[in-house]
Simulated assay, not measured.
Amino acid sequence: MKHPAAKRERAEQQGRRAESVAAGWLRLHGWRILARRVRTSRGEVDLIAKRGGLVAFVEVKARTKAKDLETAIDHHRLKRVAAAAEILYSEYCQNGEDARIDVILVAPRRLPTHLPNVWHGF
């Protein structure tokens, strides 16, 4: 049986790799990465990116199987990202930028899937 700490460490490494893939994907599409893994008292935002007058607070989800991406994100997780984004908004949107919450799904041997503006209560 594998040790729980080793499993957590592998998941952490997988998450960091996925965030790097997602950041690269965003850069290729004209985004500038402003921050990574920003923690607040209400949640964490994996990436904060800007393109033009738009700031995206991005949740990155990685799965080892592409079929598991369909269930990787849920309302509860998005609600935590939105709560964190509300706290961070004034810091990253100082010049009246629009803001939205995006999700990027990452799985081996496939291009990342970018889901823009997934939270409409922001």
Rank of each mutant, 00 (worst) to 15 (best):
A82P: 02
R100D: 01
L88Y: 04
G96K: 02
R100M: 13
R109K: 15
E70H: 08
A85R: 03
A107G: 10
Q94G: 09
A107T: 02
H76M: 10
R80N: 10
E70I: 03
R77V: 08
D98W: 11
A107I: 01
A72W: 05
V106S: 05
N95T: 13
H75A: 13
I73G: 02
A72M: 08
I73Y: 01
A82Y: 09
K79L: 13
Y89W: 09
L88E: 06
A84M: 04
R80F: 02
A83S: 15
A85C: 05
E86W: 00
I73S: 11
E86T: 08
T71N: 13
E70A: 13
R109G: 05
P108G: 10
H76C: 00
R109I: 01
R77D: 07
A107L: 04
A83C: 07
R110T: 05
A99K: 11
A85D: 10
H75M: 08
H75L: 14
D98F: 13
V106D: 01
D74V: 05
A84D: 08
I104Q: 05
V81G: 08
H76E: 14
R109Q: 13
R110S: 05
E86K: 04
Y92D: 08
R110N: 03
K79P: 00
A99I: 04
T71H: 13
D102K: 01
E91V: 13
E70T: 03
I87T: 15
Y89E: 14
R109H: 14
G96E: 09
A99R: 14
A107Y: 00
N95E: 15
E97N: 10
P108Q: 00
E86S: 14
D102E: 03
E97Q: 15
D98K: 15
R77F: 00
E97C: 12
V106E: 01
Y92C: 11
E91M: 09
D74P: 09
H75W: 12
E91L: 12
R100C: 10
H75C: 07
Y92T: 11
Q94P: 09
V103A: 11
N95C: 11
R77L: 12
I104P: 00
R100T: 09
A84Y: 02
A72G: 06
I101M: 09
L105Y: 01
A82F: 08
E70N: 08
R80M: 10
E91D: 14
C93G: 00
Y89P: 00
E91K: 12
I101N: 00
G96T: 06
H76Y: 15
H75P: 02
I87P: 08
V106I: 13
A99E: 03
D74N: 15
L88P: 04
L88C: 06
D102R: 05
I73W: 01
R110M: 14
A84F: 00
T71F: 12
I73C: 07
L78G: 03
R77M: 12
L88G: 05
Q94N: 06
A85H: 07
L88D: 05
R110K: 12
E97V: 07
I87G: 03
A83F: 00
L105S: 07
T71L: 11
Q94E: 13
H76V: 14
A72T: 06
D98G: 15
G96P: 13
D98H: 14
L78E: 02
